[in-house]
């Protein structure tokens, strides 16, 4: 197994379900954000749970699944549009085992399970990313794009490059689980 990645214990807050959230991340409207468990939010990340759908009652703005990673300096904010003349932000749903690289901007509507997003990517508004897809580093995905399952997207604008092997699901699952176990606190 790869060597552990150490972080200082003082920097991260660990919840009962094993989520590790950096104190240096900016989290607006935390009551509207759901973390599935064993999810890591790195330092410098910005998560906007305050941009909620108008209307009465409790609104979930961003939900992340299990074993997710939000990289350093990432911005996650829900997409907006006007529908029937009313302006609104719409919820953003992210599945399990999703890794988002450093400094990416994500405004997707839905991201499936086992998705890998590289560094410095821009994911446009209302993008739908299906299961086991992969977005290469520095990709710019235009708004309203649908990225099919088991496909690799790269470039500006992001285009289909190749199909991924069927073993992707197991590979990504093992990788994300291993990353979580490698991410260990350093005492002192």
């Amino acid at each position: 197994m790869d060597p552990p990645i150490y972080y200082s214990k003082a920097e991260f807050i660990e919840t009962d379900t094993g989520n590790k959230v950096s104190r240096r991340a900016t989290i607006a409207g935390p009551q509207n954000i759901i973390l599935g468990g064993k999810t890591i939010i790195s330092s410098g990340a910005i998560i906007r749970g305050d941009l909620r759908r108008t209307g009465p009652g409790h609104a979930v703005v961003i939900s992340l699944g299990r074993y997710c990673l939000v990289g350093e300096g990432c911005v996650m904010r829900p997409p907006y549009k006007t529908y029937r003349g009313n302006f609104n932000y719409y919820p953003m749903k992210i599945g399990d085992h999703v890794h988002i690289g450093a400094n990416s901007v994500v405004e997707a509507a839905t991201i499936g399970n086992h998705v890998e997003i590289g560094k410095n990517c821009v994911i446009g508004k209302f993008t739908i990313i299906k299961d086991c897809a992969k977005i290469a580093d520095n990709t710019i995905v235009p708004p309203n794009t649908v990225i099919p399952a088991l496909s690799l997207f790269a470039g500006s604008p992001g285009r289909f490059i190749e199909d991924l092997p069927e073993s992707t699901q197991e590979m990504v699952e093992a990788q994300t689980k291993q990353f979580y176990t490698r991410f260990q606190p350093l005492e002192r």
């Binding site: 749970g49 909620r52 108008t54 549009k81």
Partner: peptide
Amino acid sequence: LRRKHAEYLREMLPKFN
């Protein structure tokens, strides 16, 4: 869209920030 966006933010941002 721009006008409505600004209007929405003027209402929502002070509630959380």
